[in-house]
Design a protein around this nucleic acid. Structure first.
Lengths: 199, 199
DNA sequence: GAGTACGTGGGACATAAGTCCCATAAAGAA
DNA sequence: TTCTTTATGGGACTTATGTCCCACGTACTC
């Protein structure tokens, strides 16, 4: 049933229209608090609302497409050493800095990922590359823990950081952003320490 | 500006109406995936939609009021010992069991808490008593860490557990619910271990 | 018992998501 | 040029949120 609308005939024109919509939505999201309506994004892209719905069947899908991609391929500074705890601390700090920096968008994405409901089709949402960063930071431990152990630990590290932790630590626990980041780093290091001591 | 609508004159009648609305909303939430519309909740409560909006100015506020209260005052089994790690593991396990048990409601609450936007922060949302449970579990450490240290550690433990972690570990990392709970317990114990070793 | 305050119901209205149908104009082919 | 394909635009329609106004009837008061 689902050849994507853009993948058939007159591809260039459609790609331009799609890009215009995504760019407009991205600008509007970055601009302010409330996510833009489909109509607003369409108007900003000089496209009719009907056409916008042809490309993105839901507001959700449009906002997901408008989510800025993070380009960094590594979170580690160049001069980081071989100490796993130090490397993870740096990676978590970098990751959290990115999260804090784009907090409104991150919150929007988290909200969208929760609106999926349990039933419907779920769009490739929020697949983070954070795990990759943490696996890289944990590379010196791969002999000790093995690939599976490293991956498991990276998952655990990601679970204590990210926008979800930031939201809870600031909104509910009442921490400042700086305190939240520091607590996250402290927790991540604790995980690494336990993993190394057990191996 | 805001004396709650129910706090003036004819209080009993209003309380009954309010309770009927909350009960109806609660039942509908527990029933199935999609949160009920205000109209549905009003109809189920045999009340007009207009009246429903008089009591709860937004769907959000109605759903928040319908959030089932957790009655447990402790997450610790009666025969738990004095070992902090064991106590925290039990508390986290109990907490996560509760979260898994009411996962749809927890997800709805998390989503609602994110819809607040940056402009208007109202409604006391999602104040958890998890911290209290974890503080209780950490009580044997209060000499070592002090009250502030215990609270800080309890916050850290809460940050690695709860619905936010469950959502990420299952939806994104692809873990089963059981794996997610075990990883959470493992992480919580790691935090306790680091805290005790540092004190 | 009469008068008034107030909780409630009904309906209209605005905005937004999402769907559907039909008209239009431009691209590509004959 | 002429014909056909097709991306787009316009507008109607449905459902839901949230607001507003007015009428009705019951509860409380004098």
């Amino acid at each position: 049933m689902s050849t994507a609308y853009e993948q058939t005939g007159r591809a260039h024109q459609k790609q331009r229209t799609r890009m215009a919509l995504v760019a407009a939505a991205r600008d509007l999201v970055a601009l302010g608090g409330r996510p833009p309506t489909v109509g607003e994004a369409a108007e900003a892209a000089s496209v009719s609302r009907t056409t916008a719905y042809r490309y993105f069947p839901t507001q959700r899908s449009l906002l997901l497409a408008a989510h800025p991609e993070v380009v960094a391929t590594s979170m580690l500074p160049a001069d980081v050493g071989d100490d796993p705890e130090e490397r993870v601390a740096a990676a978590v700090r970098g990751f959290m800095a990115m999260v804090v920096d784009s907090e409104p968008q991150q919150r929007t994405m988290l909200r969208l990922s929760l609106e999926a409901g349990t039933d419907s089709r779920q769009l490739p949402l929020r697949q983070g590359r954070a795990i990759g960063w943490f696996i890289e930071a944990l590379e010196p431990l791969s002999d000790h823990l093995g690939a599976d152990g490293v991956r498991r630990l990276a998952i655990a590290v990601r679970a204590v950081s990210g926008i979800e932790s930031l939201v809870w630590l600031t909104d509910i626990a009442g921490l400042t952003r700086e305190q939240a980041v520091e607590l996250t780093v402290w927790s991540a290091v604790a995980l690494v320490r336990r993993a190394t001591q057990e191996a």
